[in-house]
């Protein structure tokens, strides 16, 4: 018995095993083959891979699948650039519906320089935790808690807290993905098309002096905006001015002119314009606590 025989046998056996298993794999890949549209991969490559969920799908891959099937239209992907959206539309031979850019807006303007605090919150530095404990320390029950859960939740670096503890949305970076809307325990964020320029930056359901006691820029439900604006555009519901955006075409700066607190604003060129009737607040440091 030569030593070569043992080596030869082993090689033969291993080789045979390899060939046998390869045959099984080959058969399985034939048998279990699932046809996948090669366009899905290509469309997915053209998406921004943000997996943000703004398109209503759980991520970019399912969105690409839905696009190829023709269920959704490419314009739904808000983080994507116009060119890429057009490219996807051209690739799939569909018409990309032109969608207006939408952004997240905060319905509160009560930073630490205008909103009064009735208590100091010393617990967990998270809005959701603060909301459980007597709603944080702010006098206003509906206002922004200012602990920055939205700042952390925003994956596009579009939200930053300013020095008064209010989140500022960078409209250029905002993709309207809804993350801040979900995370805010006070439900202060809303997603709006940029053409919605009339904006009530308050959610306070208290009225008159009571509202102004807690925050200098609160909506006091005085209804002057309702009177000045075209009929039906604004109404007071539960002590709060509410804009009917189906009539957005009628909106103009007339409505904000006589607002005594400046709670209703006209968002123009990244600046929130207050009416001439609004009291001027030039305070640049936080109010004393107490």
């Amino acid at each position: 018995m030569t030593p070569y025989l043992g080596i030869g046998l082993a090689a033969l056996f291993m080789g045979g095993l390899g060939v046998g298993l390869a045959a099984v794999l080959a058969a399985a890949s034939r048998k279990l083959y699932v046809y996948e549209d090669p366009r899905i991969d290509e469309v997915e490559d053209m998406l921004p891979h943000a997996n943000c969920g703004a398109c209503t799908k759980p991520g970019c891959r399912p969105f690409a699948e839905a696009l190829v099937k023709g269920e959704l239209d490419p314009g739904l992907c808000t983080p994507n650039s116009q060119e890429m959206t057009q490219a996807i539309a051209g690739f799939l031979g569909v018409e990309a519906v032109k969608r207006e850019k939408r952004v997240a807006r905060l319905a509160c303007a009560g930073g630490a320089h205008v909103a009064y605090f009735r208590a100091e919150y010393a617990g967990l530095k998270s809005c959701r935790a603060a909301a459980l404990v007597s709603g944080g320390g702010k006098g206003c029950t509906w206002g922004c808690l200012g602990l920055g859960d939205c700042d952390i939740a925003c994956e596009f670096d579009a939200i930053h807290m300013n020095k008064f503890g209010l989140p500022i949305v960078n409209e250029g970076k905002c993709v309207a993905c809804d993350d801040c809307v979900d995370v805010c325990p006070k439900d202060l964020f809303e997603i709006h098309p940029v053409s919605h320029k009339l904006w009530v930056a308050c959610k306070s359901l208290s009225a008159g002096d009571e509202a102004e006691q807690d925050c200098e820029v609160a909506c006091t439900a005085c209804a002057r905006c309702v009177v000045d604006a075209p009929e039906g555009l604004i109404e007071i519901r539960n002590n709060l001015a509410i804009v009917d955006y189906t009539k957005n075409d009628l909106a103009s700066t007339v409505a904000i002119e006589r607002c005594p607190t400046g709670a209703i604003v006209w968002l123009d060129d990244k600046k929130a314009k207050k009416g001439t009737g609004a009291k001027k607040i030039v305070r640049m440091e936080p109010l004393p606590r107490g």
């Binding site: 208590a119 010393a122 617990g123 404990v133 007597s134």
Partner: peptide
């Protein structure tokens, strides 16, 4: 500094 409704272990600090 703080006012608590209930006991110190399980009570709730109040803000008003």
């Amino acid at each position: 500094k703080s006012v608590i409704m209930g006991g110190p272990m399980m009570g709730q600090p109040i803000g008003s």
